[in-house]
Amino acid sequence: MLELIQQYGLYFLIGQYPSGPLGGLALTLILAAMGLLLSLPLGLAFGLMRVSPWGWLRGPVTGFIYLVRGMPLLMVVFWAYFFLPSITGVKTDQFWTMLIALVVFDAAYLAEIVRAGIQGLPRGQMECARSLGLPYLRAMRSVVLPQALRNSLPSLVNQFISTIKETSLGYIIGLTEVSFIANQINTLVFTKPAEVFGALGFTYFVLCFGLSRFAHGMERRLARRGLGSHIAPKVAA
């Protein structure tokens, strides 16, 4: 195992960089981080459109979400990789293809999480904010969203963890992220598949577990600031 790490450790971490393109765990991390950073605001925007009082905003987003949710991520990746260039005439590279597919796919799921968070609040919260004279979007921002997002945090983290693991589908289009590299190493070494894929599995586990712990810490911090989910206003039946 030690020998394996000595020989292929760096390759596992950064691919062929600096003599070739950046790959390995570094690429996976960049892809996951960018996927999260881009899909969250997009998912938030889609979620807000989905609950908006204006039908012309709701309609297209609803259609988009149904469409994306109705197919496997792999299809979205193929679609972005093979079909998109054939109509645009521009060959997108694997990294951007994968990133676009991830962001589109996750934004649709995040939008539904955001929607559930918003619609799960008592209707009186929005109503009361409006009755004080706050315009719709301001009421959304200062009254509804802080509570809705806090309540959605566990589901959001769930989705983020999925995103990390979904980056491994880059393998299919030859993106040299960590799963691809691990498979390369396995081909080169040939005799130690358990060790190689064990290390790969452990790597994903550390990433996902780390994110879970981070989210857990954040939930506790929010609870201390009064945003805990246990404090919905007491209401007599």
Binding site: Q125, E127, C128, R150
Partner: peptide, 20 residues
């Protein structure tokens, strides 16, 4: 919004904002 800012409204369920 200007209209509502000029009318106080008290709800049955209080509707205090729990995060504030």
């Amino acid at each position: 919004n200007a209209l509502r800012a000029g009318i106080g409204f008290v709800f049955q369920q209080f509707n205090l904002f729990p995060h504030l």
